[in-house]
Amino acid sequence: MVAVPELKQYLNNQIKVELNGNRVVQGKLAGYDFFLNLTMSDCVEVKGPKTNPEYIQLGQSVIRGNSIINIELI
């Protein structure tokens, strides 16, 4: 039996999501579904070194669950 992701406690909180292809996005979790597809508001992509990152505004974004490697509350 497959369990539904337990992300209810993270709704409306800032999260950082690591995606395949060494991409990182962060924003406010607005929703999710059974397949771990995420809807994020105020989303930005983080590029560059951690000491001086570049932020690219994405706005409202939908992230497919099969591209997610890690989710972190920030």
Rank of each mutant, 00 (worst) to 15 (best):
E18F: 14
F35V: 01
S41P: 06
V46M: 14
G21S: 11
K8N: 09
E45R: 06
G21D: 09
N12L: 02
V46P: 00
L38T: 03
E72T: 12
L73D: 04
G65R: 03
G31D: 03
T39F: 01
V44Y: 03
R64G: 12
E18L: 15
K16R: 13
A3R: 02
V44Q: 06
C43I: 09
D42W: 10
I71Q: 02
F35S: 11
V44S: 11
V4I: 07
E72I: 08
L19K: 02
V4H: 05
L19Y: 12
V17G: 04
Y55D: 12
N37K: 12
K28P: 01
F35D: 07
L11H: 02
S41E: 10
D42K: 15
V62D: 10
M1S: 12
L7Y: 10
Q57N: 05
K47M: 07
I63D: 04
T39E: 15
A30C: 00
G31Y: 00
I71D: 08
I63M: 07
G65F: 08
G31M: 01
Q26E: 06
E54I: 14
V62R: 09
K50E: 03
E54M: 14
F34R: 06
G31W: 00
R23H: 13
G59T: 05
G65D: 07
L36F: 06
D33P: 05
Q57T: 08
